[in-house]
Design a binder for these strands. Structure first.
Length: 113
DNA sequence: GCGCTTATCGCAC
DNA sequence: GTGCGATAAGCGC
């Protein structure tokens, strides 16, 4: 990761960084924006999170609006905290799930790339 | 209606 | 070269 990060990862980071506060995106959206079906691959890239503070991985949720992985898979309290933060941003989160997902769901466009 | 399994792609070691 | 990983979708019962 010292030179030329994979275009794929780069785009994932770029898209994730594009997500404004108060909105969340889904792996599917990212995959579609990249034109790939590697939902997991995206998670893989986000998991490495080379730019943790710059990349709001906590703003990326499952297609169902369910808060996935993040630190949650390992730290429930942390996940709850993030959920609370999202709530503060304007994202309705309840039980680790996006309530008004339809209202905060941020989708990407081909031009986003 | 709910649950489990399978398919897919890329990154890291 | 292999394994794993933050999913998604489909099919079955």
């Amino acid at each position: 990761m010292t030179k030329a990060p994979s275009n794929f990862a780069k785009q994932v980071y770029a898209l994730t960084k594009q997500v404004p506060a108060g909105q969340v995106t889904t792996y599917k959206a990212l995959a579609q924006a990249l034109g790939t079906k590697a939902y997991r691959a995206i998670g893989q890239v986000l998991r490495c999170n080379p730019q943790a503070p710059i990349i709001p991985c906590h703003r990326v949720v499952a297609s169902n609006g369910l808060l996935h992985g993040f630190n949650g898979s390992q730290s429930q309290p942390a996940l709850t905290k993030k959920a609370n933060l999202l709530k503060k941003e304007g994202v309705r989160v309840q039980n680790n799930r996006i309530v008004n997902l339809n209202s905060v769901l941020f989708t990407f466009t081909r031009q986003s790339l």
